[in-house]
Design a protein around this nucleic acid. Structure first.
Lengths: 253, 253
DNA sequence: TAGTGGTCTAGACCACTTT
DNA sequence: AAGTGGTCTAGACCACTAC
């Protein structure tokens, strides 16, 4: 990364800088390596620190960099492929489940969730909180809404709220013979609570996966899962992994 | 009493501002309405314009706002659900296809694509460019890589490169009886060319959908599609639509 | 031409981690 | 204490759109 000057180009400085840095990452850095600090980098390229940061933000968004306050900026490993597949029997609570239930409570869900579940607006539902860990790193946080009618045989309140009750709800839900599910993915930003769990700052980009589980034609449960967008690649296929794409697309010349 | 840390840190201004604006959008604005300009808004809230812009960026990322240079900031409509489903027979070129082929050329693909296709590094493949339009607005741009071996009966170069050839490649590809496909979704930023096509500025966030089409156990084609992250919600289910989620998640209390 | 959002600067201070 | 990235400021100018 010996380049010291940016030749004048019609494109924005931060975008050109992004490209230059991206190429430097490919050729001169390896995964985990620490970059020079922002003040030095900005000086080296002759731009203000804010401009340099704009370029770094792009690269972080693309999963190329990882920035940690008080530590520094490192070259990120390739994104982890996390299966959100449709065909496998990965119903909530299944044996090969990658999710770890952490909590459960009975509470009225947000209005939008109640609408999708078909429950009354203030009818309480089981709200199971789960977290997903891959390679020792938290990658997703989920809220799973289960109407009591979907788990009719759930033993009463003798099980305390908390992890134990979460497992009980999942166990009963799985007895209900779920038939199908459909999901949607969209971009979001992480809220304060999830941010802590995912070890990110508030506002960090996340992929929000909303999944509706169907049983006997009814919506048996609804899940809203937020995945770290910087480290995750969501795979939907029946089979293996696709690992393509690196940075912004460019037209084949 | 000693120092307590019940309020350890004040929320960042831009984050608080985001929340305030978000609530204002819910209660005081309707879709399409124009917000006051950034300088006025910043003055009204007593912050620098850059801070105000940080809040607006968050809201735009969440699909709540739409900003257009020279025009203003407007309240965005709910995101469009675009089907990227796995079960339907939406192979490239199918009748109900939402894609419009725009161009085609024979060129060596990027190294990563060649690797996934199993072609030699500099072996040229058919590169079909398509665009997807919904409600009159462009939502996605795609590059579809088709090795010549997947379309053996394609008539020679008598068809000119361009739209006509693109259609020819798709037609032949569909004769190959595609069996399966698997996809991956990740966050990316739009490159200069796609930015123009999607009517966004370079660096705007996109959802990159990489799809591998399989036929007779081989990878018959590979598609890299970039969807506007601000306006799109990708639906993967077999059936209907799920419309949940609004803004960052908050723990159910 | 006037008004909008987009880019850029040169600072300052804060929160956090490591030494 | 030193060093890092995160936040914030108060300006300036540019690119684009509409009138």
């Amino acid at each position: 990364m010996g380049t010291t000057q940016l030749e004048p180009v019609p494109e924005p400085k931060y975008w050109h800088l992004r490209t230059v840095l991206s190429e430097a990452l490919d050729s001169e850095f390896s995964v985990g390596e620490i970059l020079p600090n922002e003040r030095d980098l900005a000086a080296r390229f002759g731009v203000a620190r804010a401009t340099l940061r704009q370029a770094l933000e792009q690269l972080e968004l693309e999963g190329r960099l990882q920035r940690r306050r008080g530590v520094g900026t490192t070259v990120a490993p390739p994104r982890v492929g996390v299966a959100v597949g449709t065909a496998q029997h990965t119903w909530p609570g299944a044996a090969d489940d990658a999710w770890e239930p952490t909590d459960c409570e009975l509470a009225a869900p947000p209005a939008a969730v109640a609408g999708a579940l078909g429950t009354a607006r203030d009818e309480p539902v089981h709200t199971v909180r789960r977290s997903r860990v891959t390679h020792g790193q938290p990658v997703a946080a989920e809220l799973l809404y289960v109407p009591p009618s979907s788990v009719p045989d759930l033993t009463a309140i003798d099980t305390p709220s908390g992890t134990a009750r979460a497992r009980a709800v999942l166990r009963e839900l799985q007895r209900g013979e779920l038939e199908r599910r459909d999901s949607a993915v969209e971009l979001g930003s992480v809220g304060a609570e999830d941010a802590k769990e995912l070890d990110r700052l508030p506002g960090a980009p996340v992929l929000v996966v909303t999944t509706r589980y169907l049983a006997r034609g009814r919506t048996a449960a609804l899940s809203v899962a937020t995945y770290r967008a910087d480290t995750c690649r969501l795979t939907f296929g029946d089979s293996g992994d696709v690992e393509i794409h690196h940075g912004p697309q460019s037209r084949a010349s």
